[in-house]
């Protein structure tokens, strides 16, 4: 896991419009991105603000309607290969056990089996999955399924990790633990992470930088540098600064009309 360092993401004027003519829906942008190698950046914003679209654009899985995205200085034209993706749903193959779900990367990319298996075993150990190798997804708890999904996204040692609300379906206790485990993995490997979330606590708890997005069309309205020491504790309230960061995000949401409290 000491392999390649993270990739940089540069985006200028990224815009996404779905459909054409009168049905056209301006979903995103224009937004600029400037993410440094090895940086942990969160995108936070209300539903439908284009967070997931941004992620797919960065992965090269969707084409931008306008604007340029450069990964390590190279303009993006095809789906990015040096990337690991984790969604809210684990999306594991029900017919493969945990280890073979991870080894799908090896089989499809035709990489060396021994090396990949060793990496998978190491990841399993770090993610607390040792002993679950031969279990099928239905035999795993929600938290463990998501851990396997993270292992699948990292086993080929990508330079970038894209996560779309990866802990959204988990209970609060599992979430806190998996948040910490992800942070530890990241501290060790320093992949560039683009982390999409609805949770202010998760965003502030994990990120170097939090990008706050507004709704339709999605735009970046705030860019908050989080200067908290790592690794961060389970209870983020221990940091007096945490409340200020959280307050700043809540404040932005209130200004945007995301919250309408009376």
């Amino acid at each position: 896991m000491s392999g390649g360092t993270g990739a940089s993401i540069q985006g200028r004027g990224i815009t996404k419009i779905f459909g054409k003519g009168e049905d056209a829906h301006h979903a995103l942008g224009p937004i600029d991105l400037d993410i440094k190698p090895g940086e942990f950046v969160s995108l936070i914003g209300p539903s439908g603000c284009g967070k997931s679209t941004t992620m797919l654009l960065v992965a090269g899985l969707e084409k931008a309607s306008a604007g340029v995205i450069e990964i390590d200085g190279t303009p993006l034209t095809a789906p990015l290969s040096e990337v690991g993706i984790v969604f809210q749903d684990h999306l594991l193959l029900e017919f493969r056990n945990a280890i073979r779900n991870v080894m799908l990367q090896q089989e499809i990319r035709r990489l060396d089996k021994k090396i990949m298996r060793a990496r998978a075993d190491l990841l399993f150990a770090k993610l607390g999955l040792t002993g679950t190798e031969n279990r099928y997804p239905w035999q795993l708890s929600g938290g463990m399924r998501q851990r396997v999904s993270i292992a699948r996204a990292l086993v080929h040692e990508p330079t970038m990790l894209l996560m779309d609300e990866p802990f959204g379906a988990l209970d609060a206790i599992s979430r806190t633990q998996i948040r910490h485990d992800l942070e530890m993995l990241w501290l060790e490997t320093r992949k560039t992470v683009l982390f999409i979330t609805h949770s202010i606590e998760e965003a502030v708890g994990l990120s170097d930088r939090v990008l706050v997005m507004s709704n339709s069309p999605g735009r970046i309205v705030d860019d908050i540098r989080i200067d908290l020491p790592r690794p961060r504790p389970a209870h983020l309230g221990d940091y007096p600064d945490f409340a200020q960061y959280a307050q700043r995000v809540y404040g932005t949401f209130e200004k945007l009309g995301v919250y309408r409290f009376k």
Binding site: L56, L61, S81, F87, D89, L91, E94, L104, Q105, I108
Partner: peptide, 29 residues
């Protein structure tokens, strides 16, 4: 799930590989 294709495409899977590793075993049930 169409999002699974996002993952296989990022792995660089060909149509044939997607068929072999995902679609056929997935539809067997």
């Amino acid at each position: 799930d169409p999002r699974l294709y996002h993952i296989t495409r990022s792995m660089g899977a060909s149509e044939l590989q997607t068929l072999r590793y995902v679609r056929i075993p997935g539809s067997m049930r």
